[in-house]
């Protein structure tokens, strides 16, 4: 296995931290992502990542913790989207888009001020594209706690959430407060996005939220299977991405290694492609 895991891979502390945080973020995103897919919230899930970036760049500006920034940004964004987005899909998309665009503009300002006032170089890349190898060991317990809290919250609202995702009318008839449930779900989505923004950067955390879940939903219609498959794809993609990024130091000229997030995103996309092929082949089989 020496050819695959470059020397020092398992003993390097940054790699160990990256493997743990990556797995936590991938699992949480996969679980929340499956529900987001069923509810048609791919665009909202993506918009939250950009709003998280605003929080992250704001946190750098005032010297607060990045995780707090990402999380705060995502939560505020979730609130704004919940307030603005009522009515049919098209109108909801436009409202989500406006929240997204206003947040991106603020990111532009914060990152500009970060670069000019603090003289911090590379802050744009760090906030937007992540730095998994740069995560400090002290974030591990925080990430695990946040991940556990997100999963717990999702588990608490699981039954009404699934029912109201599949049929709003039926859920309402059963006396489920549909509005409250969808508000709480946006909060869990924001928590997952905040966590993964720290891991692979806010712009790319869409990959962990949407990718594995979309792939899983293609190959199974059962919720429990989808959750397991999505988490599996998420964890494997993240770990493989970390390994490849670590190895890329040896492949590239000038020893300029490629970013972790790049490999994670490519892995997720490949997994989605494979699942789509499986689904297509199965569909053809049924017709014959």
């Amino acid at each position: 296995m020496g050819w695959f895991f470059a020397s020092g891979f398992f003993t390097s502390p940054p790699v160990q931290v990256a493997l743990v945080i990556g797995a936590v973020a991938a699992t949480v995103c996969a679980v929340v992502g499956v529900v987001a897919m069923v509810r048609g919230l791919a665009f909202a899930g993506h918009a939250l990542t950009d709003v998280a970036a605003t929080g992250g760049s704001g946190a750098v500006l005032v010297g607060a913790s990045p995780l707090g920034g990402f999380l705060g940004g995502a939560l505020v964004g979730a609130g704004a989207i919940a307030l603005a987005g009522h009515g049919p899909q098209q109108r909801r998309d436009v409202a989500t888009g406006i929240v997204l665009s206003a947040a991106t503009g603020l990111s532009a300002l914060f990152l500009y001020l970060d670069a000019t006032t603090n003289a911090t170089t590379g802050v744009t890349q760090r906030v937007l594209f992540g730095s998994l190898f740069g995560a400090s060991p002290s974030t591990v317990p925080v990430a695990i706690e946040l991940g556990a809290a997100t999963l717990l919250l999702t588990a608490v609202i699981a039954r009404p959430l699934v029912l109201s995702s599949l049929s709003r009318e039926l859920a309402r008839a059963r006396g489920i407060p549909v509005g409250v449930v969808s508000g709480v779900f946006l909060v869990t989505l924001a928590m997952a996005v905040g966590l993964s923004a720290l891991t692979i950067g806010s712009l790319l955390s869409t990959a962990l939220v949407v990718g594995p879940a979309a792939a899983a939903v293609r190959v199974t219609t059962r919720m429990s299977y989808a959750l397991v498959i999505a988490s599996g794809i998420g964890i494997v993609s993240t770990w493989l991405g970390i390994t490849l990024a670590y190895d890329s130091y040896n492949w590239m000229p000038h020893n300029q290694s490629l970013p972790v997030s790049f490999f994670v995103v490519v892995d997720v996309a490949v997994a989605y492609g494979l699942c789509s092929l499986v689904a297509a082949r199965r569909a053809r089989g049924h017709h014959v």
């Binding site: 897919m37 048609g40 791919a42 665009f43 899930g45 993506h46 594209f129 712009l203 790319l204 869409t206 990959a207 949407v210 990718g211 879940a213 979309a214 970013p259 997030s261 790049f262 994670v264 995103v265 490519v266 997720v268 996309a269 989605y272």
Partner: peptide, 14 residues
Amino acid sequence: DATTALVLVLSLAT
């Protein structure tokens, strides 16, 4: 939406 999101993140990652 999912495929759009994936094209988006692939472009950004590249």
